[in-house]
């Protein structure tokens, strides 16, 4: 555990928890081929500043919908979505959103893809500095050497990592992540979880992290929100009572982890049995 992470952990414990994101009775209904699909029942959720919240639940239960609402890509059919106390009325530029499907630009090489956020006028960065940060990021996510490869030439896992680098490089204050590490093998996943924890703690990011992997959720999150399927609704919210900072590689062998896992698994397994693949 390095000093940087320990200091951040301390700071978090002493800072007052203001609400960063708030969903008040937010619900979402879609119109699909003439009939209505209720994706999300009214949901109340508060995410504090610099908090790491994990959303877990079976496929198709509305987890991504919640992220979309916070990102402002959708308007709620009912209720309100508040960011920093203000209602979200359009694309929310203060969040970084890592979607399930990576949206790398196929005609740009990987390094250029990662650079793109720094090219935009709203945060124009001099070329030299941008290149440096891109190199740093690529090293961080383990893509060193693939700068000139095109997305079509990368594996699924590598594309995910590139997308992650692209999102993190401009240090948004809030991070929304939709099953970012699903396609990675176990070892790489742990490495990425470790990196994510460091980065988000160091940069004091607020994170909403969607996953169906309980282990991931318990390892990283401060709170875990269990979501039930079809229609989506919050089933329970659990605090993760594991000490910070956590050793990503070893925490899964602790007793506290096991207990937390058991409790959550009991809640989830009925839902998983019921829910079928989308």
């Amino acid at each position: 555990m390095d000093r940087m992470t320990r200091a951040a952990a301390q700071a978090q414990r002493s800072a007052p928890a203001e609400t960063k994101i708030r969903l008040v009775g937010a619900a979402k209904t879609f119109r699909v081929r003439g009939s209505e699909l209720e994706a999300l029942r009214p949901v109340d959720l508060e995410v504090g500043r610099e908090e790491f919240v994990a959303l877990v639940g079976p496929s198709g239960c509305g987890k991504s919908t919640i992220l979309n609402l916070v990102a402002g890509l959708m308007a709620p059919s009912a209720g309100r979505v508040l960011y920093d106390g203000q209602e979200v009325t359009g694309p929310n530029r203060r969040v970084g959103y890592l979607t399930q499907k990576d949206t790398l630009l196929p005609w740009r090489a990987t390094a250029d893809n990662i650079r793109i956020a720094l090219e935009l006028k709203c945060r124009a960065t001099p070329r030299a500095e941008a290149s440096e940060r891109v190199a740093e990021m690529m090293d961080l996510v383990g893509l060193k050497g693939f700068e000139h490869h095109y997305p079509a030439e990368l594996s699924g896992g590598m594309r995910k990592r590139a997308a992650l680098a692209r999102t993190l490089i401009y240090e948004p204050e809030t991070l929304l992540m939709d099953e970012p590490f699903g396609a990675l093998d176990a070892q790489l996943k742990l490495l990425m979880l470790d990196q994510l924890q460091r980065l988000t703690q160091h940069r004091r990011m607020t994170v909403i992290f969607v996953t169906h992997d309980l282990g991931e959720a318990i390892t990283l999150a401060d709170r875990i929100v269990v979501i039930s399927a079809r229609p989506g609704r919050i089933r329970a919210i659990h605090d993760v009572r594991l000490e910070r900072p956590r050793d990503v590689f070893k925490v899964r062998f602790t007793e506290g982890f096991a207990r937390q896992h058991e409790r959550l698994w009991d809640e989830l397994k009925d839902d998983i049995a019921k829910g079928t693949d989308v």
């Binding site: 890509l73 694309p91 979607t99 949206t103 956020a117 935009l120 709203c122």
Partner: peptide, 13 residues
């Protein structure tokens, strides 16, 4: 559309 959304979210005009 998803690509456009990503860029918009990043702050592209």
């Amino acid at each position: 559309r998803d690509i456009i959304q990503s860029l918009t979210l990043m702050g592209a005009t």
